Simulated assay, not measured.
Amino acid sequence: MATSSNYTTRQIAQQNMNTSMNQSLSIYVGNLSFNTIEEDLKRFFNDNCGNVKRVRIIYDNNTRQSRGFGFVYFNTIEAFNDALQLQNCQLDGRELRIAPAETKNSSTPSSSSSSSSTNTTTNTNAAANVTSSVVPQTTNRSRTQVVHCKKSNYDVYIGRPSDWGNPFVIGKDGDRADVIRKYRSWIMRQPDLLARAKNELRGQRIACWCKPEACHGDVLAEIADADEIKQS
């Protein structure tokens, strides 16, 4: 009987160790595009690392919009280590910020509510371990903000050569007021960009090189926040 008892104890210990190891093979992924869905994230890491167990993107409870970060769980230590090497690789036009997700060793939860609490703590701690510049600050922001790309954290770059860049140049096409006015007239004839501005820029921190000077970003912010756009 003693042998059977010892064997059972070893089995339980091994199971607990395996569970702890599986929980630790997870990474935090920040700076995700708001258009990236869990299938995209899983495909990206499966293609580059393989052995993805599951993925989870964190969404705002009220708006159901992605908060710009998530977690990826792996089946093997090799895949986990390979994933950490993908720091700054691009997915959907964004450079990924990757770090090991922090986990806490604890006894097996006795209820689903206990498990949920543990997962919440783990996710919060992992996000806190990455600098604020990694996690897009998007929740509860009512107005689009224009900032300097080298002086502030931002969500979307709108300078040249991005799709949002001003094709009109100070000097060649007039003074600052002239090129802003020309940009406004030009973008009002670009229905695709107008629609994208509403979907992609609204409520974001958009960045160029001009702030605190006036710039075309002010036009984009106005368009993004407008309830209705009257095209020229």
Rank of each mutant, 00 (worst) to 15 (best):
S5V: 14
T8G: 14
T8C: 10
Q11T: 12
I12G: 12
Q15G: 13
Y28I: 09
L32T: 03
T36S: 12
D40P: 14
F44Q: 08
C49N: 11
V52P: 03
V55H: 01
R64Y: 11
R64S: 09
R67A: 00
R67P: 02
R67Y: 00
Y73R: 02
N75V: 02
F80V: 02
D82I: 11
L84H: 05
L84W: 06
N88Y: 08
D92Y: 05
R94G: 06
E95K: 15
E95P: 14
A101K: 02
A101Q: 04
E102P: 09
E102L: 07
S106H: 10
S107A: 05
S110W: 03
N123F: 08
V135M: 12
T138D: 05
S142V: 13
S142E: 04
V146D: 01
V147S: 01
K151N: 07
Y154F: 15
Y154E: 00
I158C: 07
G159D: 07
P161D: 03
D163Y: 09
D163M: 11
G174E: 01
A177V: 07
V179Y: 00
I180G: 05
I180R: 04
R181V: 08
Y183K: 06
R184A: 14
R189G: 15
P191C: 15
D192W: 13
A197N: 06
G203W: 07
Q204H: 12
R205V: 03
R205K: 13
A207K: 02
A207T: 01
C210L: 05
P212D: 04
A214I: 06
G217H: 07
G217V: 00
L220I: 12
A221S: 13
K230R: 14
Q231V: 08
S232C: 14
